[in-house]
């Protein structure tokens, strides 16, 4: 099954507008005079056109893309993500990233992953992002640094991103509406469970009803060893971070003593 009529050109046009807008919005000082003046407005206009194209394509595609809630949270995530990448000030970039995280959490909720939506807000926006802001406040010199006003090869990167996105979109379009039965590899636990109950609920509402409980069963059943390994990884990262900091301080004080 391929995409419905008109969806593929719409998607590819949106991708092209997205790449061009991204190139115009990326920080640079080497553009021609008139382009320098109009680049931000033109970039925002192209980005809005890309968003509108994506929304129209979503309506053509049907399914999830047609729901208004999905379109709103997807737009929040995409606008936040774009602004994260193109904003010159790193502090503003971190704040925009928080907005993108809100959109992604909304996407996860719409997709039926309640626990992951809440965990994204708590872990990312609550912990990781605040850590980024702490480091920024520790390390950023006053004012806008010169290296925040330029970017490495914005044109080449935007073109490469657009090509990759077009390839991904086209390959997503070849996805069939229902998962093929041949490719479902049942695990041993699943095979045991399938004998008692149908493994795959046909109704997504049934999937959503006890999602957190089923996620817990999946994590602590099939992935128990991996969960333990993840806990070990967290411990190693904690110890490693502290060790690097203390060794760096020891080296610095030794250098000072030598000088």
């Amino acid at each position: 099954m391929t995409l419905p009529d008109g969806a593929t050109p719409l998607l590819l046009g949106s991708v092209a507008a997205f790449a061009a807008g991204l190139w115009l919005l990326l920080p640079s000082v080497q553009r021609a005079g008139w382009l320098e003046r109009w680049s931000s407005r033109l970039g925002v206009a192209l980005g809005a056109a890309a968003l509108a194209g994506l929304a129209l394509a979503g309506r053509r595609l049907g399914g999830l893309g047609e729901e208004a809630v999905f379109q709103i949270v997807a737009a929040v995530a995409l606008v936040g993500g774009t602004a994260t990448v193109v904003t010159r000030s790193p502090v503003y970039a971190a704040i925009w990233f928080a907005l993108a995280l809100t959109g992604v959490a909304g996407l996860l909720l719409v997709l039926g992953a309640q626990f992951l939506g809440v965990a994204t807000i708590v872990v990312y926006a609550g912990a990781i992002l605040v850590m980024f802001l702490f480091v920024l406040m520790l390390a950023q010199p006053t004012g806008l640094a010169p290296y925040d006003r330029v970017s490495n090869e914005p044109l080449l990167s935007a073109v490469a991103g657009g090509v990759l996105l077009a390839l991904l979109t086209v390959s997503i379009g070849r996805l069939s509406a229902e998962p093929p039965a041949c490719c479902q590899v049942p695990s041993r636990a699943d095979a045991v469970a399938a004998a008692a109950a149908p493994a795959r609920p046909a109704d997504p509402a049934a999937l959503d009803a006890d999602a957190v409980a089923r996620l817990g069963a999946e994590l602590f059943g099939r992935h128990l060893v991996a969960v333990e390994a993840a806990g070990l990884l967290l411990l190693v990262a904690l110890v490693g971070a502290i060790a690097v900091v203390s060794r760096g301080e020891a080296a610095e004080s030794a250098e000072r003593g030598a000088a």
Binding site: A57, A74, V85, L107, I172
Partner: peptide, 16 residues
Amino acid sequence: SLIHGALVVGAVLFVL
């Protein structure tokens, strides 16, 4: 199972 929209959004975020 029509998840094209979510996959496209994920791809755009990755490319960004």
